[in-house]
């Protein structure tokens, strides 16, 4: 039996998400085992599940591996400068508050070079969904230490181990004022999809951290194949919705908390602007 005629093998391809991806750009650039693809796919499924017409969404990415996501989604999408996805998206949101704005980017982009923008968008409760693929490393540049790299981890710029402590992203998002904060891994992809769906429908600044393996530039130097990383996600995570984000630091030795940490309501930036600044005069 030749490959072409074997049952269950479809060389034409009609994946259920094909209507949301730029199929002419597939395969994407992400390495085998990279978690970005799963996080991206999950995001597309979540968009689909909202039932909202696709052209009412827009996606903005920064720079880095996950920053390429904007180039694969078949809606109006923007691949901007390093760290600047959130302020670019803020401009879109404030000029067109009816649009559903998604920022899809990486930990280096959103929390090192773009950290200031992140906290201010959260403070203003800018009505957008920020999805951070956290692979604990700068992947695209070849594996340098990030603001999320665990202490002692080996990277190309911490050859003796990382001397610094990483950020606790859910805690930062909460402290800065986010309306919705969740963390999942790509292994928990059903929960992740539900969380993204909730976040898309949630009014206000929503933040979802997605733990994802970088087998080439993190795993390789820290003796972790991508399947090992996923097994770690299975064995060393604790699902605890409503957990205190202060306890959300990533320590696989102790166990990493997953779930929805925060889900609260607060007026959004555009609502407050309208209410405060637009004077109704006859």
């Amino acid at each position: 039996m030749s490959a072409n005629t074997q049952p269950g093998i479809d060389h034409q391809g009609a994946h259920p998400l094909d209507d949301l991806i730029r199929t002419d750009r597939i395969p994407h650039i992400w390495c085998p085992g990279c978690g970005t693809g799963t996080a991206f796919s999950s995001c597309l499924t979540a968009i689909k599940a909202t039932g909202i017409p696709y052209n009412q969404f827009t996606m903005v990415s920064g720079i880095g591996c996950s920053g390429r996501a904007a180039g694969y989604i078949k809606i109006d999408s923007f691949h901007t400068t390093h760290g600047r996805a959130i302020p670019f998206a803020s401009g879109i949101k404030m000029a067109r508050p009816d649009l559903n704005v998604i920022v899809f980017s990486g930990d280096g982009d959103l929390f090192a070079i773009g950290g200031n923008h992140f906290i201010h968008a959260a403070r203003r409760n800018m009505d957008m969904t920020v999805i951070c693929v956290n692979n604990l490393i700068y992947g695209m540049t070849g594996g340098q230490v990030a603001a999320t790299t665990p202490s002692k981890a080996k990277t190309t710029t911490t050859p003796f181990g990382n001397p610094d402590a990483p950020f606790n992203l859910p805690l930062m998002a909460y402290a800065a004022g986010a309306s919705y904060v969740a963390r999942w891994t790509i292994l928990h992809v059903r929960d992740l999809t539900n969380a993204i769906n909730e976040a898309l429908l949630k009014k206000g600044f929503s933040f979802i951290e997605v733990l994802a393996p970088c087998p080439v530039n993190y795993g390789r130097r820290n003796k972790q194949k991508s399947l090992d990383t996923l097994r770690l996600y299975r064995e060393k995570t604790i699902i605890r919705n409503g957990a205190d984000p202060a306890r959300a630091d990533i320590d696989f030795g102790r166990g990493v908390i997953l779930g929805t940490f925060i889900d609260r309501d607060r007026d959004t930036c555009d609502e407050l602007y309208d209410a405060t600044c637009r004077r109704n005069e006859d």
Binding site: A89, S90, G91, I92, A95, R96, H120, R278
Partner: peptide, 29 residues
């Protein structure tokens, strides 16, 4: 701006200010 149907936002730095006007420009304004 609010009186003519526009929007003003003071961003966190000039990097963000510049980024915001690019994003907004793609909404057609």
């Amino acid at each position: 701006l609010p009186d003519v149907g526009g929007t003003f936002i003071q961003m966190e730095d000039e990097i963000a200010a510049m980024a915001s006007i690019l994003g907004a420009a793609w909404t057609g304004v």
